Simulated scan of single mutants.
Amino acid sequence: MKKTILSTLPLLALAACASAETEAPIAVRIANASPAVSVTARGETTPVGTANADAADDPAIWRNAANPAQSLIVGTDKKAGLYVYGLDGKTRSFLDAGRVNNVDLRDGVTIGGKPGILVVASDRNDVANAKLALFSLDPATAKLTARGKVDGGKGEAYGVCLYRASDAVYAFIVLKDGTIHQVALDASGATATGRTVRTMKLGTQAEGCAVDDRTGILYVAEEDVGLWRFDARANGSTAPVKIAAADGKNIVMDAEGVAIAPVGDRDGYVIVSSQGDNAYAVYRLTDDSYVGRFRIIDGAIGGAEETDGIDLMLGDFGPAYPGGIFVAQDGHNAAAAQNFKLVAWDDIAKALNLTR
């Protein structure tokens, strides 16, 4: 969800005027928040096609193991459809899919009888009836092919993330009211099918989510409340456990996109977009402890502000991103339409002094 930023009035006057009913200006929010280190982007995508609107939203990364520099990024224009970008930021393809909000993918999924790259987007073309829109991604042509839609429940589709378990591939679809449905997906036949296996609930508006396939843990951002984790297993508990509050310190409302950096068998980090002050908060997976915060500031390439969706993948992505890549939606891309900024994980790790 995009916020309007006010920054033209003197800080003290704005601070005095701020109330519980009025969102504090960006200068006040930054002053009250925990310190954040700075990094700069090494790349950016071409802007989405919808201009003068809050349109770009969420990215998903596919790594080309055979040729990492030829990896791809899928990004949503939530007013129009799905883009596929190369790591050079250039648009490789666009598919008119209508109002798709968030996106995730998994490689090696059986699609139409053979292994492929499954891409799933939260489809809110009908705001009263959520859908999961399924696609296959051809890595050679960078084109998406629609594979059908499955029911995501009553309400407006918002967030989505995938979970590859031993028994199935699941999608978690986060509805705007905080309802979360876990849907078992089957794309092996001519038409994709899905079956809701259980439902979880947060109290207010939620969107960003990510699943750690190693540990079977689902992470969800409740925008004005904070970051939660759930047991992602289909037979697991539906009770949420709070990791961090959106209290204006480490996470400044809104808590938005969520991404995971897995390290080893169980360790690593979960990152959440602190949209309220243009930052990203980092927590350790093993004990939920706070690690630090960073911002993407202007450099040779512009910074990122008001970030909705994020994605992160470690590993070799070629000379520009040898240790991994972090992709963040930029909600204020100067005079152009919104786009996505590409940051080297090595730069983030160095800035935060992450040793592992």
Rank of each mutant, 00 (worst) to 15 (best):
D347S: 11
L342Y: 09
L202E: 14
D177I: 00
N353Q: 15
A320E: 07
A244W: 08
L342Q: 08
L354K: 14
K350C: 06
A349I: 06
S289N: 00
I5K: 14
L144D: 05
A146Y: 04
R63G: 05
N339K: 01
F326I: 10
A130N: 07
P240R: 03
L352A: 09
T4G: 13
G248S: 10
P240T: 11
K3L: 13
V174E: 11
F135G: 00
M1K: 10
A349T: 07
G264W: 13
T110G: 06
A55K: 04
K201E: 14
A246Q: 06
I117L: 15
G208A: 08
A206S: 11
G236R: 00
P240F: 13
G148Y: 04
S274I: 06
A328D: 02
L314H: 01
V270K: 05
N353E: 13
A279M: 03
G315P: 02
E44H: 05
T286V: 06
G264D: 15
D224V: 13
G152R: 04
G153A: 05
D186N: 12
G302M: 02
R233F: 15
V263G: 11
M200S: 07
V48Q: 07
V74I: 14
V220R: 07
A55Y: 01
G331E: 03
D54P: 08
S7F: 14
Y219N: 04
